[in-house]
Nucleic acid binder design. Structure first.
Lengths: 342, 342
DNA sequence: CTGAAAGCGCTTACAG
DNA sequence: CTGAAAGCGCTTACAG
């Protein structure tokens, strides 16, 4: 008996009058065991409630069939509530399913670098780190410990240093900006977040380049992701307040929650969407689909991203070569009322 | 060196010219090691990229600090998409956070009874099984293998046989039905799901008892959970079609997705909510909050349920007594336009 | 202060 | 067909 009271393979062996080796063989269908013996062992094992320890088994090849997903932005979002974090929830769910399909379990881990982190936090065979921050300590730690990982979106301070699933932040931003221009916007502003990740940084770079090409003066404001829809009033003040010079007639919000807040605040201030302001959001949330007016968003296809990330993680865990192209599926644009004039 | 190429404690010992024991002591701050030696060991360990194997460590006390959440209804929902499954996503997110706070990781597991299930699927220290089906094989398996678990909502065929967090399906149904009656409904119908779980069963029982008390003829229809909003037309036909005798003027839908579909379909058929039909849903989804008209829902407080379930699971994992009351927080009613006349 | 030995619960060559 | 032995990578009394 184990300390915890759980019967071990020895207990089964004793009870069945055989050796542990034979129990192992019988229960795993390996080696050669007389049918009669195998049956008896199975019976006895069932009777005394034996279950093989996955930990002891995992010790042989030091693999548990466990993947871990670390969604970094959740740190600053400070919530798992679904409003506006559709993207991450869809990603977590899809990643769990994709892992299951490949014979792995998926663990959601907050921050494995935390001092009090449980044993399991570092026990995964491979890690997926979504949207790491600049010089992200999680990547540093995984790298130092030689734990395989793939990041979704690069660490903006260490591009290309690790295995990363390239996101298409740049082209996605252009997709949205071009759409706003085609819809009739002359002066497009950018509302970004304050997290130091690739999504924010590259989108901003892409926006600046886009403005330069069009000969437009850039107009950027950053608000904390965690504020979500609450930024509405402040953002209206920033872009349309008395102190403002040229007002934008198009706005690209990098997050759906910011867009939702701005959409509602615009209505309160008599700024009509889409007549006065064409509005689009980077990562769509359910409320953007349902709001009045509904808001045009990018669909980044987090399910596709998750599936790809899991595929890579499994290859890393098993040490097989990465035949996979290290990029995510292309985003699509869901055009809605906020960018449809007339 | 390990087979996988990962350095082991022996490698560190060799490189530092000490015994594995001393390495263990030094790295874990146990025993007594001269500062000088400890420093050297730390340095060498860093250099060769040593990381202690959580699996080997876990073997000592056969605990990994890992909890698992099995959300049974996801099987039939067949999706992790957020629409209308707010409840489970909020639950999964909150459970992950609650686990982290208590020094555990949380694993989302599909079905540990599956033949191909990974080692990790059965490696958790304790399991939380949400809304088990009747005679749920997952509960049977966990029970047979003496793996600690708590079910959220009972297995309707085996009530009270296992450790379960009692849900308040009965009183929650009454809360919604009473509200519909107070709002002016004379003939309240019930739209339930087809899953064989406690939520569906007990709600139906509560509804029948409620009808009996009020002297009202019960009117129940069941539609598959997986159909979600697509049930709209069929449900309208069922309750308001030509073949229907007495039409209901109040309707309680057990799921938010069903309610959303019905709400939209009612509008298309000229059935006004709330004027002609008072509508309430059992487990609210975001779209119920945002739809036109918005729909009154119960808030089951999945975060509270998750926190409680994790608390119980941790006690089970650690073998400490359950001082916790085995019941979930009381649901509240979010009254919205669909039940507000005038 | 340091290390040899036993042990955690399994699996796997290998010998009988 | 069955079992003794070694080993997976650690930790932990215990002896020196």
């Amino acid at each position: 008996m184990q300390a915890s009271g759980r019967p071990t393979i020895k207990d089964v062996a004793k009870a069945a009058g055989v050796s542990p080796t034979t129990v192992s063989h019988a229960l795993n269908g390996k080696g050669v065991v007389r049918q009669e013996t195998a049956d008896r062992i199975a019976l006895v094992a069932g009777q005394i409630g034996y279950r093989p320890s996955p930990i002891a088994r995992g010790l042989q090849n030091s693999r548990l069939g466990l993947l871990a997903l670390v969604i970094r932005p959740l740190r600053s979002l400070d919530t798992f509530l679904p409003e506006g974090v559709d993207y991450f929830l869809r990603m977590a769910g899809a990643a769990s399913l994709a892992a299951m399909e490949r014979g792995y379990s998926m663990m959601l881990v907050d921050d494995p670098t935390r001092p009090g982190a449980p044993l399991s936090a570092t026990a995964a065979d491979a890690y997926i780190v979504s949207e790491p921050f600049a010089n992200d300590p999680v990547l540093t730690m995984l790298s130092e410990r030689h734990i395989p990982f793939v990041s979704v979106g690069s660490d903006p301070a260490r591009r290309g240093q690790f295995i990363e699933l390239a996101t298409r932040d740049w082209e996605e931003t252009e997709l949205a900006l071009d759409h706003l221009a085609e819809a009739g916007a002359e002066r497009v502003a950018l509302l970004t977040g304050t997290d130091q990740n690739a999504w924010n940084r590259e989108s901003e770079e892409a926006y600046l380049a886009w403005c330069e090409r069009r000969g437009q003066t850039p107009d950027i404001a950053a608000f904390p992701e965690a504020e979500g829809e609450r930024i509405g009033e402040a953002a209206i003040e920033r872009f349309f307040g008395a102190a403002t010079g040229t007002r934008p007639d198009g706005l690209f919000c990098l997050t759906g929650r910011h867009a939702a807040g701005l959409n509602a605040a615009a209505h309160r201030h008599g700024i009509r969407v889409p007549e006065d302001l064409l509005l689009a959001a980077g990562s769509g949330a359910l409320q953007n689909r349902i709001s009045q007016p509904s808001v045009t968003t990018l669909d980044l296809h987090p399910e596709g991203i998750a599936a790809r990330a899991v595929e890579v993680a499994v290859h890393l865990a098993e040490g097989t070569p990465l035949a996979v192209p290290l990029e995510v599926p292309r985003a699509t644009l869901d055009v809605r009322e906020s960018t449809m004039r007339g």
